Simulated assay, not measured.
Amino acid sequence: MTPKEQGFFFPPEWHPHRATWLTFPHNDHSWQDDKLDRMRPQYLQFIKAISEGELVCLNVNDIRLKARVLQWLSEAGVDLDRIRIVINPTNDAWCRDHGPAFLINPATGERMIVNWEYNAWGGKYPPYGDDDFLPVAIAQYLNLPHVSPGIVMEGGSVEFNGAGTVLTSKSCLLNPNRNPHLNQAQIERYLCDFYGMDQVLWVEGGIVGDDTDGHIDDTTRFVNEDTVVACVEEDPSDENHTILQTNLQMLKEMRLLNGKQLNIIELPMPKPVYINDFRTPGSYANFLICNAGVIVPVFNNPNDDRAIGILEQAFPGRKVIPLLADEIIWGQGSFHCLSQQEPLV
């Protein structure tokens, strides 16, 4: 029986968390030169913000790094009682994509992990064998059952509304560098069977600088069952303008399982975020919803305050926590890319 047939499903991000899982950055190929050292203070503030409301489970590459991590956390004022360090060898830091997908079964109180295959966004960044094994390692650590669908899937490529719908992008999941043997209908079947969904909705593509081939978590996010924030680029001459307008039009034409249209809140893109002449995939949509609030990446950018105000209105009753990510974004991802929530049942 598939997880869906057993009553399991992937809950929305606003479902209460037991913990958030992170993989502590150690690969200086992702943050070249001195940028790993420069991004670390922002990463530590991210850990601290999450830990205000839940446990933070840290995959740490080895014992030697563990000692340094504990020192850095203490110096940053993080409550170590809120931290669980697990020694798990990894290749990179992007836990949203290589980490476990946690399913819950409210009827039985059970949880399960989906062990999707991981190939570093179409084989772009070998080696990735340790990252590919991580969901099994965490399932063993937590003594949870796991199921392996046998196809490539990344957490940043899918977005859930908690009412049977998953949203994704054609540029990523239909890319032949993921699952060339599967067509769109077959991929939809896997998404429904192994995430416990009833409907798959598709936007077209992603933003400039995103090396994932267009992950949904940089462009469109559910904030409740029938509402999304959708990134828009208001400058018609900007490279992101056309693709985000295409996505927006597709969103307007979608219908949920109950037949309703989506409520769409337009979220501006930051003015282009450049580091060393490279345009990074800076996006306010790459936020993490956690127990403490909504942690939003900001970039010392003219559009920061406007985006924060829009997200505060989109999340009534939740604290919006803006944190600088102008060093983190050099790795071509931000807070959502770096994290994976573990839900309560």
Rank of each mutant, 00 (worst) to 15 (best):
Y125G: 00
C172K: 03
L144W: 04
P145M: 05
D132V: 03
V147L: 06
G155K: 09
A139V: 00
S157A: 15
S157E: 10
C172N: 13
S171W: 14
P135I: 10
N175D: 12
F133N: 08
M153N: 10
Q140R: 10
L142K: 14
S148H: 14
Y141W: 15
D132F: 10
T165S: 13
N143L: 09
D131S: 00
H146G: 02
K170G: 03
F133Y: 11
P127D: 07
G164S: 06
P126D: 04
S171G: 05
G164K: 07
T165Q: 08
G155L: 00
L134P: 01
G155Q: 04
E154W: 09
N175V: 00
V166C: 15
P127S: 11
N175K: 05
N177M: 08
P126K: 06
L142P: 08
F133P: 00
A139G: 09
P176T: 11
A163C: 14
L144I: 02
Y141M: 07
N161R: 14
E154L: 00
G150V: 13
Q140P: 02
Y128N: 06
I151D: 05
T165E: 08
F160K: 04
P176V: 05
P145R: 03
L144F: 03
V152N: 11
S148W: 06
H146K: 02
Y141P: 00
P176G: 03
D132E: 07
P135E: 11
G164W: 10
E159F: 08
G150C: 11
V158T: 13
F133M: 11
F133A: 14
V166W: 08
P127L: 11
P126T: 06
L167E: 12
P127N: 13
V152A: 08
L173D: 10
L167D: 13
I138H: 01
T165A: 07
M153L: 15
G129N: 12
N161H: 07
D132H: 15
D131R: 02
V166L: 09
Y141S: 10
P176C: 03
G156L: 00
E159M: 05
P149D: 08
F160Q: 02
G162Q: 01
C172P: 05
P135T: 12
F133G: 04
Y128L: 03
V147P: 02
D130T: 01
S169N: 08
E154H: 06
V136N: 09
C172F: 01
S148E: 14
D131V: 07
L174M: 15
N175P: 01
V152C: 12
V152H: 15
G150Q: 12
A137V: 12
T165Y: 07
Y128C: 13
L174A: 04
N177Q: 03
P149Q: 01
F160Y: 14
G155W: 08
S171C: 03
L144M: 09
G129I: 10
Y128I: 07
G155D: 12
N161P: 14
G129V: 04
P176Q: 07
Y141T: 09
